[in-house]
Design a protein around this nucleic acid. Structure first.
Lengths: 130, 130
DNA sequence: GTCTTATTACCACATATGTAGTAACAGTTA
DNA sequence: TAACTGTTACTACATATGTGGTAATAAGAC
């Protein structure tokens, strides 16, 4: 079962769970910055949709309120998002990277880290070949 | 005027124009791979929406058919997409890059190129400071 | 046990998007 | 000019998403 597709608002709700663990609707809602906080019922509706998608589930009940927790990992959900996005660019990461550089979103430090990551992965694969 | 937001299908239609220049609806439609080719009227509807968004416009008429051309550049449209996407990740490119590496979408060659790009940009900025 | 209040359950609605049909009309051709 | 063919113009409709209201209900306070 591939991670379900998440919309922007859905993603923000999942973030609240990934960052803070099991939470009630109220808690999720209150974690939104006050200026852009959706109505309680909006969060409720969206959580309901996430439940249908099996992105989260009810883990227990405290008082009258259900407590929800993520059923898909952040890494998994992000993977899906990134893959989908990459597909829009014909699967080529290069133009995306170039844009990040232009936009000042990447510095030499970041690049070093990516390079190290790549080398580690290569070494890993090398070992596994034996 | 910031580049308008483009949906997936809209983007594919713009690609057709970016790649081949001014085209008729028919030409755009026939450039879709046969297996996933939307109906003529679907392309027509979507082109109409792109027209409203000012992403493309009619440049002339040949026989009974209008000829459309892009009004926003590929670079501009992609910029917008990328920025929006980046925002989903809190503006941090690092996790996205990491995913690209994991997914095998980046090799050392790509990284070299990005690094060179970054250095060039830095040099450029340095010069402009004077 | 009743009152109060938070929560749930359910509903409604606007916009964006993908999808495509139909009618009218313009160009081309016999 | 009358018929044929391709285009346009307009309409329709399903799904996803953001948004939030209302009624019923369950917990806790007295």
């Amino acid at each position: 079962m591939p991670p379900p597709k998440l919309s922007k608002l859905e993603l923000r709700i999942m973030e609240a769970l990934w960052d803070h663990g099991p939470s009630s609707i109220r808690e999720i809602q209150e974690r939104f910055p006050a200026r852009s906080r959706p109505a309680y019922t909006t969060v409720q509706t969206t959580v309901g949709r996430l439940e249908v998608k099996k992105a989260l589930g009810r883990v227990k009940k405290i008082g009258g309120a259900h407590i929800y927790d993520a059923l898909v990992s952040r890494a998994n959900a992000q993977s899906r998002l990134i893959d989908e996005f990459l597909a829009l660019f014909g699967g080529r990461a290069q133009p995306i990277m170039a844009h990040f550089v232009e936009a000042g979103k990447l510095n030499l430090e970041d690049i070093r880290r990516v390079e190290r990551h790549l080398r580690e992965l290569a070494a890993q694969n090398e070992k596994e070949k034996t």
